[in-house]
Design a protein around this nucleic acid. Structure first.
Length: 471
RNA sequence: GUCCCGUUCGUUCAGCGGUUAGGACUCAGGAUUUUCAUUCCUGCAACAGGGGUUCGAUUCCCCUACGGGAUACCA
């Protein structure tokens, strides 16, 4: 049987990085196994509908290079891939369950349910539905259904143990008495996640359910449904959660959680994928940089970690810097040009400046700031810089420098190096005291990209203009 | 409250009965460089606690503590 995995997000408006990792693992595993990866939109909650959410979801996945084989816009005979369009399927299945007594209509009001829960908490009992409507006769139920609102609940076993195997958690046991009579169909006629999920996974022939750990406690409900239908359940794979620095579930409150946020901040999709893939799984060894193909080759679903992982931006920054440093020049230049913000740049020499700055970026968003050495006026020297400017040797260097530069037609990187050699010869000044004055004279700063690039970018006239005042 | 899951350097991941407990990020120091960065080298830093099992436990079992998740007509 060939592997089928699925990513089944609800369209909430953006893709959470935790979801990205779930999608990634599903995708990687399917590719590795030569299987199929499905995207299914879980939009059964009418109250949570968000305009444009699906488009955003599709766009984010595309940017990340996570390609699905079937899903919205890629329909096949297993579709549709929107749960909101599959109600006929759910209705047919729920009817079977009600007819054979595996599920029942519940007419209880939310007020009664709230009170019940409160009472159970106070008595330190497990919370859950008390089964009031469990044994209403078929006739009475049919009669009430004509005039009253109802939901449909699953008739969960009352005793015994639900045992199952999870690829990450291994053997898990949950007492049936702890499992609630789950609502399968809401009073608006739409299925709940638990129901739609099982039906869809079955008909879409999903073999591996790879999802977040928050679903682990619901597994018995799902397994029982498979049993009621006489279907073979898929392999369960519950991933550890992504955490905030304080180890709570990664949330919006404590920083960015949306994929688009990170993309907007200048992280590359490749770095983001690489970083997330290594949160919860690692092939071992020194290397931490993996392309998607390498991840697919190295991935081992049995070696997924159990404990939650803190999303450490510092490591992401480092990784992203690695990706930028190793990026193909043309690709880098094209991408970098999108990040100039409102910098006024010398279009002709922009590439020179961008290349000079390539190794110092942790994200593309750093570009405007890093470029300021080139594009702005010289900064005011600080005390330490001023000390160097005040040196006698500095004056000599400047005089010789301006003299040499003035003679040149042009001032390219190579010309500059020649000039500096000559200045050294003429003045006898070398090392730090030769180079630093020129740097400070031109930029006002003791730090920055390689001087030769700055010199070339500024050009002959600007070089003379900036140095002359110090003579 | 109840149930489930988890616990190796600050973070992340190795380790799967006998190791000087390893790598990566961060941090500190050094080398190279005209500076920062890059690159390279070195260093700091961990098996939550207590019981077992065993000749021997980071590794297996139990308990405790701590953390997280689930307890919705949300997913």
């Amino acid at each position: 049987m060939s592997v089928v995995t699925r990513f089944a997000p609800s369209p909430t408006g953006y893709v959470h990085v935790g979801s990205q990792r779930t999608a990634l693992y599903n995708y990687i595993f399917a590719r590795q196994q030569g299987g199929k990866f499905i995207l299914r939109v879980e939009d059964t909650d009418q109250n949570r509908y968000v305009e444009g959410a699906v488009e955003n979801l599709l766009f984010s996945l595309e940017q990340l290079g996570i390609e699905f084989d079937a899903g919205p816009g890629k329909e096949d005979d297993k579709g549709p891939y929107f749960q909101s369009q599959r109600n006929d399927i759910y209705n047919a299945e729920i009817k079977k369950l009600v007819d054979n007594g595996k599920a029942y209509r519940c007419f209880c009001t939310s007020e009664r349910l709230d009170a019940l829960r409160k009472e159970q908490m106070e008595k330190q009992l497990p919370t859950g539905y008390d089964g009031k409507c469990r044994n209403i006769s078929k006739e009475e139920s049919d009669e009430k259904a004509k005039s009253e609102k109802f939901v449909i609940r699953l008739k969960i076993p009352t005793e015994g143990l639900c045992e199952f195997h999870d690829l990450v958690r291994h053997d898990v046991k949950i007492a049936w008495s702890q499992v609630d009579d789950q609502v399968l169909v809401k009073s608006d006629g739409y299925p709940t996640y638990h129901f739609a999920n099982v039906i869809d996974d079955h008909y879409m022939e999903v073999t591996h359910v790879i999802r977040g750990e928050e679903w682990l406690p619901s597994v018995p409900k799902h397994l029982f449904l498979y049993e009621c239908f006489g279907w073979t359940p898929p392999q369960m794979v519950h991933l550890p959660l992504l955490l905030n620095a304080d180890r709570s579930k990664l949330s919006k409150r404590q920083g960015d959680v949306a994929v688009e946020d990170y993309l907007k901040k200048g992280y590359t999709p490749e770095a983001l994928n690489n970083f997330l893939a290594l949160l919860g799984w690692n092939p071992g060894g020194k290397n931490e940089i993996y392309s998607m193909d390498e991840l697919i080759a190295a991935f081992d679903i049995h070696k997924i970690t159990k404990a939650g992982a803190v999303f450490d931006v510092q490591k992401l920054n480092w990784m992203n810097a690695q990706y930028i440093k190793n990026m193909d020049v043309d690709k880098y230049l094209a991408e970098a040009r999108k990040w100039l913000a409102d910098r006024k740049v010398n279009e002709e020499k922009l590439d020179t400046a961008l290349m000079a700055v390539k190794t110092s970026l942790s994200t593309f968003a750093d570009i405007p700031e890093k470029l300021s050495v080139f594009t702005g006026a010289a900064a005011d020297p600080d005390a330490q810089a001023q000390e160097i400017l005040d040196l006698d040797s500095t004056k000599q260097v400047f005089e010789a420098y301006v003299k040499k530069v003035s003679k040149l037609k042009d001032l390219r990187v190579d010309d500059f190096k020649t000039v500096m050699k000559e200045v050294q010869k003429d003045t006898g000044v070398k090392g730090k005291f030769l180079w630093m004055p020129v740097r400070i004279g031109l930029t006002g700063d003791m730090h920055g990209p390689e001087l030769a690039y700055i010199v070339e970018y500024l050009g002959k006239q600007e070089n003379i203009k900036r140095i002359s005042p110090y003579i």
